[in-house]
């Protein structure tokens, strides 16, 4: 018994980390640290009072306030426009990249290309942000254009690896024999792509698009650097609000954002689990 308590493997049974003393306690503390703040945030978004720390009763007052706030409305629309455009671009690019790196004969430098595609996961976001700021400033000066295009382009760029990975994973798990069979049955390469590859790939594409959408939706760092005046997205608007008076309105917006993200990510996992 003493041996088992010390967490040594019992003969015939695999080592289990769960038998280390205190494992359950550490796990519980970790979960509390992760979720208690979020639960607090969500609970206080329903606060009837003005404080984010003093509970004064249940109300939807701050949701209504956020809903009526024109700045919030504008930032929400802007966030959705940027996320939708950027994820669409990133998904299209990633689909082509994934096809190019899995559905062609191996070519020299394909590993390097793989690393380049996933670069945004490795490079510190602040570096990308500064770099984009400088380059976009140069373009702004020479063209005079200062619209939403910069934000969309920047978001599309850092969303690519998030869209690419699930699409590539799906393609790698997809047997080439279907495409061979289609070619055997008189389908031209384009018909094969349209009728076989794309439909079979679609769960991966949808998953990639949703992941990119969520990643774009909550980005702060790059957006903060790249946006022009009056181009706040929801997260940067919230950041701005926090610098001034903090009201449960921010909680309400966060709760809404959380709800959207949870729904999208759950859908992502469901789609990803769908094999075949």
């Amino acid at each position: 018994m003493a041996e088992r308590a010390a967490g040594r493997p019992v003969p015939g049974r695999p080592f289990s980390v769960r038998r280390i003393p205190g494992f359950a306690g550490i796990a519980a503390v970790s979960f509390v640290l992760l979720y208690a703040p979020i639960v607090t945030l969500v609970v206080y978004s329903f606060n009837a009072g003005d404080s984010i720390a003093l509970w004064e009763g249940l109300s939807l007052r701050w949701f209504a306030a956020a809903w009526a706030n024109e700045q919030v409305q504008e930032a929400t629309v802007r966030s959705l426009v940027v996320a939708a455009s950027a994820s669409a671009i990133a998904t299209a690019v990633s689909t082509m990249a994934a096809l190019g790196t899995t559905r062609t004969a191996p070519f020299p430098g394909s590993m390097a290309i793989y690393a380049l595609i996933n670069q945004p996961l490795m490079v510190p976001e602040i570096v990308t942000a500064v770099a984009l700021l400088i380059v976009f400033a140069m373009i702004k000066i020479s063209t005079g254009y200062s619209g939403l295009g910069y934000l969309i382009a920047a978001h599309a760029a850092f969303c690519v690896p998030f869209a690419y990975l699930p699409i590539r994973a799906r393609l790698e798990g997809m047997d080439l024999s279907y495409e061979v069979a289609a070619a055997d049955l008189y389908a031209t390469p384009w018909q094969t792509f349209r009728r076989i590859t794309l439909p079979l790939l679609s769960p991966g594409i949808v998953a990639g698009a949703m992941l990119a959408f969520v990643i774009s939706l909550d980005d702060v760092v790059i957006t903060e650097f790249v946006k022009s005046a009056g181009q706040d997205t929801l997260p940067t608007y919230m950041l701005g609000q926090l610098r001034r008076a903090v009201t449960p309105e921010v909680n309400a917006i966060s709760t809404a954002l959380l709800a959207v993200t949870v729904v999208l990510l759950s859908a992502f996992f469901v789609l990803n689990r769908q094999r075949r």
């Binding site: 047997d175 024999s177 279907y178 061979v180 069979a181 289609a182 070619a183 055997d184 049955l185 008189y186 389908a187 031209t188 076989i196 439909p199 079979l200 075949r276």
Partner: peptide, 20 residues
């Protein structure tokens, strides 16, 4: 000629029936 231009069809060992 590429496969899609040949009036020849194949029964694959794995069948390769289109799952969708």
């Amino acid at each position: 000629l590429p496969p899609f231009r040949r009036p020849v069809n194949t029964v694959f060992q794995s069948y390769a029936l289109f799952p969708h």
